[in-house]
Amino acid sequence: MTARIGVVTFPGSLDDRDTQRAIRVAGAEPVALWHKDKDLKQVDAVVLCGGFSYGDYLRAGAIARFSPVMEPLLEQAKAGLPVLGICNGFQILTEAHLLPGTMLRNDHLHFICRDQKLRVENAETSWTTDYSAGQEIHIPLKNNDGQYVADAYTLDKLEAEGRVAFRYLDFNPNGSQRDIAGVTNAAGNVVGLMPHPEHAVEPLIGTGRTDGLPFFTSILKKLVNA
């Protein structure tokens, strides 16, 4: 039996199908979850995908964070359920306070879409064990509100605890503090990042590389070996 990984669809989610496909390509079984679901269908992990849930009204992720599905998700994430938030999913996780900091408008005020170079800083989270620490990868980035901010104390703490999981390399595309592209919680089961690994799992599309696939093979290995 393989691992079952849930993908939540909110009103305005865009990348749920791509995320399900990435999970399948990695060899796991995607399970569609709906924002109104009150249980998580006993999945082994959850991905909150990219898009513009609730039109980004109020703040990106602020309304999705109070969806019915978030209630069991919050509870189980705190108990160790692996959760990955990509782009809007990352914004939802910060709004839900599962991850520290938050995202502001890109400093240049433009939507940005580009192939982005990243460095994997932490290869020990539930979602990154198939990378090696310091590995450089290229995956697509596309967002309007991608500027990661937190107070200096939080940033220092994240750095000291190795919780900056990914950093932008060569070019900071949105003004994120300390070039932070993604962070993890202390336990390593909840990870969020702005760039989109699910768009880089097959050579034919995305960046023409499969640099995003290890996110999904990492979690599969963790769950199957558990």
């Binding site: 109020l58 703040r59 602020a62 109070f66 910060t94 709004e95 520290p100 900091g101 938050t102 502001l104 901010v149 937190a150 107070d151």
Partner: peptide, 8 residues
């Protein structure tokens, strides 16, 4: 809890 994000 909702109207403002007190982080920012």
């Amino acid at each position: 809890s909702f109207l403002a994000n007190t982080v920012i």
